[in-house]
Design a protein around this nucleic acid. Structure first.
Ligand SMILES: [Mn+2]
Ligand SMILES: [Mn+2]
Ligand SMILES: [Mn+2]
Ligand SMILES: [Mn+2]
Lengths: 149, 149
DNA sequence: ACAGAAATGTAGCCGATGCTATATTTAAAA
DNA sequence: TTTTAAATATAGCATCGGCTACATTTCTGT
């Protein structure tokens, strides 16, 4: 079941209920944090060769125990690895998530700017919006941006 | 401090840090649930004259104890009122939130459709996106839609 | 080499948001 | 009017994602 299918529920056919929409949004909310962490760890790794807990925490605007606990969850889910007192690294699954999220992030920002949103606001809003944009919508954004290249 | 200012932090001037973006997104995440509840209670009240816990729960796709607990929080925050075993009603503050969220919801759906997103996907994605669209972005959406009336 | 500083880890607290199981109350049927 | 069904409330459990306070480890400067 793909990310986009989460909302379809068990209906026999075409109808999408209100509950489906809310259930979809709840499912996404529970993965949004992981998406931000993997994207950030990928960025830090590219910049510094590794992602330190302190840097992760500072960039996210949380305390280091919060970042540490989140990294434990990432490791438990197979998205990252790390040894005590050392940097954090993404697994292949984590790196795949990071790539996917980063692509979504950039496309959302480009779309927002294309329809006239000021770049600062676009960057700000995209940080939340990016998690809720389905594959279908992403494709539409691409097509739209294409058609004004 | 308005909803849109939450992320600006305490910087003296223009620079927006990564942490500001994430902090903004976290602040919004913590109000998104209330926004969905007030919007839904307003809908149900319009449809049936009152919002029953059972109906709220069914439309959200959660169990009724979950809805009940959320309504307790809404009441505590001054967004709703209710008497035991009776329907839930919005306060003026709750109704104001509902109006604001509903307007945002509709505008996001319209914008998505305008750039080519299929209506079903637009409705689905808007349920999450709506909460993260700032006033600035909303204004830009309005201007964009205006300019193709 | 060692002392102090910085980074990391852990314990424990809290509120939010989900659930199931069980009362209690209200509404509907008999 | 009594019985039954439906709705609502409450209790209690779990996880997540924040925090502060404190312990441990690693790094750095002398
Ligand atoms: Mn994000
Ligand atoms: Mn992002
Ligand atoms: Mn919503
Ligand atoms: Mn909505």
């Amino acid at each position: 079941m793909s990310r986009d299918d989460l909302a379809q529920g068990t209906e026999t056919a075409t109808e999408t209920t209100d509950a489906d929409r809310f259930t979809n949004a709840r499912a996404i909310r529970s993965t949004a944090l992981f998406e931000d962490y993997t994207e950030l760890i990928a960025d830090l790794t590219e910049e510094f060769g590794e992602a330190r807990i302190t840097d992760i925490a500072r960039r996210l605007g949380v305390t280091h125990p919060t970042a540490n606990k989140a990294v434990l969850r990432l490791k438990r889910e197979g998205l990252a690895i790390s040894r005590p007192y050392r940097g954090v690294f993404l697994t292949e699954a984590g790196a795949a998530m990071a790539r996917e999220v980063k692509a979504r992030h950039r496309l959302v920002v480009r779309l927002l700017i294309a329809v006239g949103v000021p770049p600062d606001a676009a960057e700000m809003d995209a940080e939340g919006i990016e998690h809720y944009v389905s594959e279908t919508t992403l494709k539409a954004f691409e097509a739209y941006l294409e058609g004004r290249g």
